[in-house]
Design a protein around this nucleic acid. Structure first.
Lengths: 209, 209
DNA sequence: AGTTGAACCACACTTACGTATGAGACCAGA
DNA sequence: TCTGGTCTCATACGTAAGTGTGGTTCAACT
């Protein structure tokens, strides 16, 4: 899941520019793929491989900036490098506030683009490795039975077994059993591990997506 | 510590602009203070009150952008709103990447500035409340004796008392004593609390500043 | 010289944790 | 119908945690 070499996805309606960028990225050993429009990119089927997006601000159908803000809705979390031929400061500021990795005004030097893309890919790598840990824990959590999940949340919030038992209206011994199997299923060797996993779960549950 | 109403610190060598901004901020009930240069601001003595900075990119002595990147060295963590009369896209992108709250090209509308400053102050408020928790825990941690600190880190990493004892070359009973006083001094009612405090300490210790 | 705080340890006791054994009830899917 | 998972509980045993009492040593400060 999510393996492979990083790929740069270039979306621009100007085919000559696409080819030039494609060549540029390949010249430094990066995989690259070009698309003439957002539609074409989305239809291409998103593989879950590391990489980043390089977008023109002005695109047929949908602007690069609008698309950038909608990425989340499409389940895409690639860092974005924006390019523009006719941009202004407010536009660049808006894009950066929206979380763009970089914003390049044409004409730009090859090296600027390569630096931006390298940083974007590195950021994606970081995001992925931390997301991997979270989703691993989340996946494990779903394998717990409802009771086990409840008990896990109670004990990691500092409740003693007997307190958790009281809250759930069951006996302490039953809590111990659920607690034990929760630990085993989550792969937590100690309570400290379990607390950290629970915090991870809470942090992702609260996050706005 | 850190109380009071938020203050907008305006640094610009153009006094007429300073006065205009000062009036603008006061008109919406914000405290404001003007400075003709970075020097003047720094010499003014930094009070630890909530607020933000409004800087011109071009300043006598030191540019606003350079100053922004040095804020940390001065122990200042205010969000920064940058203004410029002669800016370009690369400059704005650089500023945003450096963590600026906003970047306004002159001329801007009053409302744009007010929105930017309001967002900056809100961000400062958030940062402060989370930093308060951290520094509270850090302060408590320093009240622990060296042994108590060591024991706390060991037990929160999942070690049993006897394992911690082994690592420290002391007896288990002594570990229990240190552990107990660490809990009491840190104000942790349960091990789960202590684990979270320890994680907070680790996260701030690792952070580059 | 006296006090204080830190670190160390032993003995003893209570409480909590963790697991094993055994068992009954329920429900859904093969 | 039988199997398997979930949830429930009791009894029991061994281990770990947490606290209290009492005591020693050492360095630092008064």
């Amino acid at each position: 899941m999510g393996g492979g070499e990083p790929t740069v996805h270039i979306i621009d309606d100007d085919e000559s520019l696409r080819r030039a960028l494609d060549g540029l990225f390949r010249s430094v050993g990066l995989k690259a793929r070009g698309y003439g429009s957002v539609r074409e990119f989305l239809d291409g089927g998103i593989e879950d491989t590391p990489g980043c997006l390089v977008l023109d601000v002005r695109l047929p159908g949908l602007s690069g900036i609008d698309f950038q803000s909608q990425l989340g809705d499409h389940g895409i979390h690639y860092p974005v490098v924006l390019m523009t031929g006719h941009g202004d400061i407010p536009m660049s500021v808006k894009a950066m506030k929206a979380g763009a990795q970089d914003f390049l005004a044409k004409p730009f030097r090859d090296q600027e683009m390569l630096d931006a893309v390298a940083a974007a890919i590195e950021r994606d790598r970081q995001t992925r490795s931390s997301e991997d840990g979270k989703s691993r824990v989340q996946k494990l959590f779903t394998t717990l039975s409802p009771r086990e999940q409840q008990v896990m949340m109670l004990v990691t919030s500092g409740k003693m077994n007997k307190q958790a038992a009281g809250e759930l209206g069951i006996s302490e011994i039953t809590v111990k059993i659920h607690r034990g199997s929760a630990m085993r299923k989550m792969g937590a060797r100690t309570l400290a591990d379990l607390v950290r996993m629970a915090d991870l779960l809470k942090s992702t549950a609260t996050r706005s997506r």
